[in-house]
Structures are given as C-alpha cells and as structure tokens.
C-alpha cells in the first residue's frame, strides 16, 4: 500500500477516535452549530495564514480557538447567542472565501479547505494530528466528570460551586483544535460530521455516557479505513467518503438497535 494511504488512514483514524468522545459532548450539549461556526472561522484562519506566509494550520488553530472562546462568551446579552454564532461563523466563511479567491496560487486548494485533502497529508501533518488527537483523548479522560456534570445541568453545577472554569475553557479549546486539525482531513464543511455522526451511531448501542464515548471513538476510528477503502476502490473524494462511511455505521447501528428492540418486544 502506498505511503500516502497509510498516512491518510492513520491521520483520519486518530482524528476520528479523538472526535468521538468530544463529539458526544457536542451532541449532548447541542453544540453542533457552534462547531460549524468554528470551522467556518477556521477557513478564514487558513486564508490569513496563507496571506501572512505562516503555516495555514497555525492560522486555523488560532482563529478557531479565538472564535470558540468569543462565541461561547456571547451568552444572551445584546443579541441571542444563536444569532451571534451564526453571523460570526458565516462572516468568517465569506471573508475566508474572498481572501482565498484573491490568491491566484491557492485557488485550486479551495476545494481542499472545504472538503479536506486527507491524501495529501505530510509526515509533519500526521505528527500534528497524532499529537492533537492524543492530547484531546487524554483531556477527555481528565475532564470527564466536570464536563458531564456541566452537561447534565449547568445550573446545579454552578449553584453548588462544582464548576471548573478551566474545564469549560479547555472544552472549547479542544473542540477548536479538533476542528482546526480536521480541516486538513475532511474540510471546513464536513468536520462537524466527524463530531456528530460517530456519537449518534454509538447512542443506540450505549447505556452509559462512558460506554457511548468509547464506542463513538471506535466508530470514528473505524470510519477512516472504511471510507478510504471505498474511496480507493471507487475513486471517490476521500474526506466525503470517510463521512459517508460514518453515516453508514450510524444507519446500521440505528436499524440494528431498532430491530433488537422489536425482537425483544415480540418475545
């Protein structure tokens, strides 16, 4: 097998595994919209990075993290948080697009930023993704209890003085980091799919939050080889194929759990 395929499989698999547990919280907290807006800002970050001649990933990471913290703090002050998040994200997308379109040399890369370019991962990219994924997984274990408490009911956690400000910020930073690294793999338009679909596929098969997180990590990791195999055999774009593989696993788990319920009800 070619080197680039190995790199793609490792990079996408690690990212999928790391996205699973964090994605569970994104699902439970209904934060998919925030994730999309972060990804859209990430595109602007990539454009600024290219324009300034620094690594696009640096621009993406910085802007994604800043956007995450900014949007999470928006609260319901002057304008509703949902409105604010939607506007910021799409302004980022539009600005990023305009900046990228102005740069003749990177014009062809545009599709890569929107849908990922996992087959073009370099060894350096792979190292970065691996480091980020391991860090995200370790942090998920470390902050598990604090995150879950805040997810179940933020008011109780705050009223009883059980909140951990650092855990809240860490969560946003990690979501932003995943989105930033995911931009190379499945692109700005599809990265949230890697956060949402594996946990959704894990849900019908889980009875505990921990079980769901582990299963989501597994399904996320599994989507990479499945998607890449399909892409290789049928000559499909790799990033979207990985997302579709995750979606197939979601359909299978949902149908399977539904069939099992029906069977046990009949017995």
């Amino acid at each position: 097998m070619d080197d680039f395929l190995w790199r793609a499989m490792l990079g996408a698999g690690l990212l999928g595994a790391a996205a699973g547990p964090i994605g569970c919280f994104v699902l439970w907290r209904r934060m998919a919209y925030l994730g999309e807006s972060i990804a859209h800002m990430g595109l602007l970050g990539a454009a600024i990075g290219l324009l300034m001649g620094v690594a696009p990933l640096l621009g993406v990471s910085v802007l994604a993290i800043v956007a995450a913290l900014l949007m999470a703090r928006a609260g319901d002050g002057l304008i509703p948080a949902g409105t604010f998040i939607g506007i910021v994200g799409h302004v980022g997308l539009a600005l990023g697009f305009i900046l990228l379109a102005g740069m003749e040399t990177v014009r062809t890369d545009l599709l890569g930023y929107l849908f990922g370019d996992v087959l073009a991962l370099s060894n350096t990219d792979l190292m970065g993704i691996a480091a980020a994924s391991v860090a995200v997984l370790l942090a998920s274990v470390f902050f598990w209890r604090a995150w879950l408490m805040a997810t179940v009911n933020g008011d109780i956690a705050r009223a009883e003085g059980r909140t951990n400000r650092f855990a809240d910020i860490a969560f946003l930073v990690l979501v932003a980091a995943l989105v930033a690294f995911g931009l190379r793999v499945v692109g700005a338009l599809l990265i949230v799919a890697l956060l949402i679909i594996p946990p959704a596929a894990a849900r019908p098969l889980s009875r505990t939050p921990g079980g769901m997180a582990c299963l989501a990590a597994l399904i996320g990791a599994l989507s990479a080889p499945l998607g890449l195999a399909a892409a290789y055999l049928k000559d499909l774009p790799a990033g979207p194929a990985i997302v579709l593989a995750a979606a197939v696993l979601f359909v299978l788990s949902t149908l399977g759990a539904g069939a099992a319920t029906m069977l046990s009800a009949r017995r």
Binding site: L27, W28, R30, T151, V152, P199, A200, R203, S206, R207, T208, P209, G211, M212
Partner: peptide, 11 residues
Amino acid sequence: DRSLPLTVGRF
C-alpha cells in the same frame, strides 16, 4: 436529553 444515556444511579 435522550441523546445522553444516563441511569439515575450514575447521575
């Protein structure tokens, strides 16, 4: 939220 599997005991 039904998306969060959580028993009373674990909660």
